[in-house]
């Protein structure tokens, strides 16, 4: 067993809503190995997006620790934080909200290459072209505005931006949930291909257990700010131990009338 890429220990974070304090994360621990996909599944409000934001340091936890690539991830600051951030990227559900609306396709990818000095300036243009091709976008899309392309294409640009900096881990928060089913299938295949090629690890967050199962090596189930169950994907779904997972399994719509089902 190789050393884990990321280890989170006992993370907690509460938010105040009116006069109530709501524990979004309540003692969450997890680990992700290099090159693996950990699927995180749970209903709305279970804390999975808060966990994504804490792991990416968009929201500070109130307690707990995170080790990423052997460093104390929460203690990093300044230049060292910036250098380490390169290795932990994020893809959001709504790529339109995740990009500068005035940006061009080529621009957002080139920015990532420039900020993290991935390739020398003179090679940047060629690298952008290769990334666009890698994620299955037609060449010549570089000059297009991020608003002028379809939702599926935009999510491909978000993936290209994330893989541009050759990260070790990408957090995908409902990254396939807003897409049409045919587009969704191709995006999932792209993610799996990229992982095989580069050895990047994913934390794949979704409320959709069927999608999680399709792409994950291990699955963690979250409810009310806690991880209630975790294990290898096939084993967890074959023998659910928590009510939450049983409920999620029961809610997956099956195709009625399909002779293959």
């Amino acid at each position: 067993m190789t050393a884990p890429l990321l280890v989170a220990h006992d993370l907690s974070r509460a938010f105040t809503s009116g006069r109530r304090r709501v524990a979004a994360l309540d003692g969450v621990s997890l680990s992700i190995a290099p090159g693996e996909t950990l699927g995180l599944v749970g209903g709305s409000g279970c804390g999975k997006s808060t966990l994504a934001r804490v792991l990416t340091r968009l929201v500070p936890p109130e307690s707990g620790s995170i080790a990423f690539m052997g460093d104390d991830w929460l203690a990093l600051s300044g230049g060292r934080l910036r250098a380490a951030r390169r290795h932990l990227q994020m893809v959001f559900q709504d790529p339109l909200a995740a990009f500068n609306p005035r940006a061009t396709v080529g621009g957002v990818i080139a920015d990532a290459l420039r900020i993290h000095a991935v390739v020398p300036r003179e090679k940047r243009r060629a690298e952008v072209g290769q990334l666009i091709e890698r994620v299955g976008l037609p060449s010549g899309l570089e000059e297009r505005s991020i608003r002028d392309i379809s939702g599926g294409q935009r999510q491909r640009v978000a993936i290209a931006r994330a893989i541009a900096v050759q990260p070790r881990l990408i957090v995908l928060d409902e990254a396939a949930s807003a897409l049409d089913v045919s587009v969704r299938g191709r995006i999932l295949e792209l993610l799996v291909d990229v992982q095989r090629e580069t050895g990047v690890a994913y934390l794949f967050i979704s409320h959709d257990l069927a999608v999680i199962r399709a792409v994950s090596h291990r699955i963690a189930v979250m409810a009310a700010g806690r991880i209630v169950e975790e294990g290898p994907a096939a084993a967890v779904i074959a023998a659910p131990a928590s009510d939450t997972l049983r409920e999620l399994i029961g809610a997956v719509p099956a195709l009625k009338g399909n002779p293959q089902a």
Binding site: V181, V192, L209, A210, R213, A214, P253, A254, A261
Partner: peptide, 10 residues
């Protein structure tokens, strides 16, 4: 369509 009977990609 993806459900719990679909062959996983990984």
């Amino acid at each position: 369509h993806i459900d719990l009977a679909t062959p996983p990609l990984v």
